[in-house]
Design a protein around this nucleic acid. Structure first.
Lengths: 188, 188, 188, 188
DNA sequence: TATGAATGAGCATTCATTCAT
DNA sequence: AATGAATGAATGCTCATTCAT
């Protein structure tokens, strides 16, 4: 056996996630990353060939987790499903923020990164389809107002995710609260 | 006397605004900026002493515009005022996004940037106070539901600004629509 | 582990000393430095964070060497001690010339440079005190003429150091010669 | 007539002299120069084609002044002449310091600068010859000790010029004092 | 003539990536 | 396998010099 393992791939991706969220894609450096890990900067290249691949892999993993959770939702009752879905998105709000950086990844250098981004794009589509499916069914059930275009309803729903939880309400309650607001509006 | 300017300060700040929104603070380079202007990179230093000052001045100008518009609103009817305010924020949604970068500006190098950031911070406070004032009055008027904490109502209101307008609805109508959604909710 | 160093820290500081003496602080560039070393310019940053730190560290090292030698002198006989001290200063005449540049170092960027400069300043004081002590004792012993103010005697003594040794007399003899001149004057 | 004269050539050279002494050749910038004059930076190019020419012209002017004064000295009595000469050098101690920078001037760009430097070099020779002449005559007169090589006597004499006048003694008295020290030495 | 503005060359510094131990 | 060290490319910024009014 060679040297002891300095850090695991999971640690690497977890740290990457945290740092990209904190500093943005352009503010994310491998030097920064290595400072938050237990090994040397050059060791990172044992796992990934370049910066792009790291971030792409990180995004892919987050997407994968969201897909798992989102597709496990029981869609019998559309409105219930939407509430559960909102909770999933709020729990994994990193996804939305991370993906904002996806377009900055230069895939020219790296086919692995390109593949990951394709996976992410496909996942994105899957989620969109699920969301549209639920919204359409909810609308057919007359659960949603008709005077506002569906894409706007969806957009507002989706945008809720990033609302800062300044009172630090526990995530499940926070998800419920946002759903309430979205459903019932602000008016008394 | 002297040569004709190759670009104006306004062009410089407009371009900066666009590029910071597009690339984020860390992705914003003076090389990039000069490529979107008609002159050389070094010419930029005729206007501002360093990168920090450019971005700070850009933010200050946007803040100033928003303050002008926001403080001109007639606050007689709180709910009407909030609708108008939302429109202002949507029109100037750049403010919100730009200001997310404010903390990255290193003011150690530049007192001018520090001064601009103070102005921005003061403006931020002014806007917050206006918003709280209107919300409190609306709540006293029983215009807002009481079962949701005020900070959450405010947070959701404010977060609406960033909802992507994917149908490209004209801004005034878009503002109205968002306000409707916020007021009445999604349920039929 | 890791690659072999392309140059040592000692080589770096020695070269810096030579180049600062040759070109002055403002004429000293890292490009110049790297051209006199075996590695690339950016490798220098493995040792020191910036130009200021390099020069400050260089000065500190020279000061340290001079302090070691100067404080090792037996001060029993003031005039003998002064002769030895002059020899030390002549041997290390770089100190005097290097320190002329100390005020140009901008310590705002670098706490390490600031610390080194403080060390240098303290060493300076130590040397000054030693010199004053010896001169005062010499004067009490009536070894020095009284018609010339002590600071002038000291100033001239100190200034001797920079006399160019155009005949390339070996350093010990050169120091002795200067001391003779200083003591006895030029008149026959 | 065109615009009013913004600054004279004399002001330009005086300011240059002061700034080169203060900052050294490499620390001397045209921007700095223009900040100490009443006109714009580009106006400097009405007088001189480049930085090298400015500094060379400045040096030449100082050399010319020194030559005038030095060659006007009555050489009848060598020791008296040397005392007067030392006073001249002390009065014009800038010459010595300025000329330390002469080697840094790149004459490749400028024939005018090259011509000025030649003048300076010739003046240097003239002064050296005068000095040697006086020293030799003084030695023949047995006014100088024989046990120290003439070049050393000359070198020490010349080096006296740069002794810092920390008590701010008026120049004529300061010159006399230095001469006394040089003649009689420090011993009581 | 005087000058405000433009600019390219040059240096400081950072960082992703490669090397060699 | 892990890593310390090397490095070139990229960017921030300055300054001498030129341009055009």
């Amino acid at each position: 056996m060679g040297r002891k393992q300095s850090f695991t791939e999971t640690e690497l991706l977890d740290t990457t996630k945290q740092l990209v969220l904190e500093h943005g894609y352009d503010g994310f450096h491998l030097k920064l990353l290595s400072q938050h890990l237990s090994g040397a900067r050059s060791t990172i290249y044992q796992y990934y060939a370049n910066k792009e691949e790291i971030v792409a892999a990180c995004m892919k993993r987050v997407m994968s987790a969201v897909l798992d959770k989102a597709l496990a939702i029981d869609e019998a009752e559309p409105m219930d499903a939407l509430e559960q879905l909102l909770l999933v998105y709020v729990e994994e709000s990193a996804l939305h923020q991370l993906l904002g950086n996806a377009s900055k990844i230069n895939t020219a250098n790296s086919s692995a990164a390109a593949r990951d981004l394709e996976y992410i794009e496909a996942g994105h589509q899957t989620l969109k389809i699920q969301l549209s499916r639920l919204f359409e069914r909810a609308q057919q059930n007359k659960d949603l107002r008709q005077d506002i275009p569906l894409p706007v309803l969806i957009g507002v729903f989706f945008n809720l995710i990033d609302t800062p939880n300044m009172l630090n309400i526990p995530t499940p309650a926070w998800g419920k609260l946002l759903f309430q607001m979205w459903i019932g509006g602000a008016k008394s």
